[in-house]
């Protein structure tokens, strides 16, 4: 914080401009469960049109940061700007994919119904679901390779298929900013590939993607920006600047095993 006092006015102006243009700018976000802060005074300025991985050890506050930014949990302090405006007026520009394990998959609903939920904000309370809405939901399912499952009960799906249905629901929201909480957790290789292809196509269409990610060995293959967190922000920026051995050590402390470090070292070298 002391450093910030020393920077010139010009630097502060640049920061301000970056925040106002960022699809997601978080300031001073602090959340505590009980007395111990889960995340403390975290600032984040997501680069537009980029794919950013939020990485950090278990319990570092990765998911908490996303949930607090979206107002799903109430922060102690902190504010979120979406494209320079308070989030409450920008909800329609955001699509959020929660952790798969956060819902009950025996809920009485079919795959297509889940995707239709992405259209609820535009349908409002009473507008009827019509053929174009259904067609749109089916098209979103097709993008994740799940169109032939449209009328299945969601409990019959495998973990990877459930994750793809969640992604299809986010696609139906036609957002500018996609926030995903551990989209690759516990999914099969085919699903991982399908998801990353969809995310890359979103980025290529100018959308911004932010994902909580836990597999360090694929960070440089899948993402172009990282945000590293361990209760506090450790580093943020393009891979080349922020994803270094030093920031990794700082984020994970002594908790990275030697083999993991080697693996990451190779990933860093391949960057």
């Amino acid at each position: 914080m002391g450093l910030e006092l020393a920077v010139s006015d010009g630097q502060a102006m640049d920061d301000h401009a970056a925040r106002m243009q960022s699809p997601l700018a978080i300031r001073g976000m602090t959340v505590s469960y009980g007395q111990k802060p889960a995340i403390f005074s975290v600032d984040m300025t997501v680069a537009p049109g980029a794919m950013t991985a939020i990485i950090g050890p278990n319990g570092a506050g990765k998911s908490t940061l996303l949930k607090a930014a979206l107002g799903i949990i109430a922060p102690l302090a902190g504010q979120t700007l979406v494209f320079g405006q308070p989030i409450r007026r920008q909800r329609h520009k955001i699509a959020y994919v929660p952790q798969r394990a956060s819902v009950d998959w025996d809920f009485p609903t079919r795959v297509l119904d889940v995707v239709m939920m992405g259209l609820f904000p535009q349908l409002g309370l009473l507008r009827r679901v019509r053929a174009p809405h259904r067609a749109k939901a089916l098209a979103c399912l097709a993008r994740v390779g799940m169109e032939s499952f449209a009328s299945r009960q969601i409990g019959q799906l495998s973990g990877g298929q459930q994750q793809r249905v969640f992604l299809a629901r986010a696609l139906a929201q036609e957002a500018q900013l996609y926030l995903l909480d551990e989209p690759f957790a516990g999914v099969d290789a085919a699903t991982e590939k399908a998801i990353i292809n969809v995310l890359k196509s979103l980025r290529d269409a100018g959308k911004t993607v932010v994902a909580v990610h836990h597999d360090l060995s694929t960070v440089s293959e899948y993402f172009d920006h990282v945000f590293m967190i361990n209760t506090r922000k450790i580093a943020e920026g393009p891979l080349a600047e922020a994803f270094t051995e030093r920031t990794l050590q700082e984020t994970y402390g002594g908790r990275l095993a030697g083999a993991q470090m080697d693996q990451i070292g190779r990933a860093l070298a391949a960057r």
Binding site: I72, I94, Y96, P98, S102, V103, D104
Partner: peptide
């Protein structure tokens, strides 16, 4: 079904 997603839509 999904309170987290519901909250994210406002």
């Amino acid at each position: 079904f999904d309170p987290g997603f519901a909250a994210s839509t406002g």
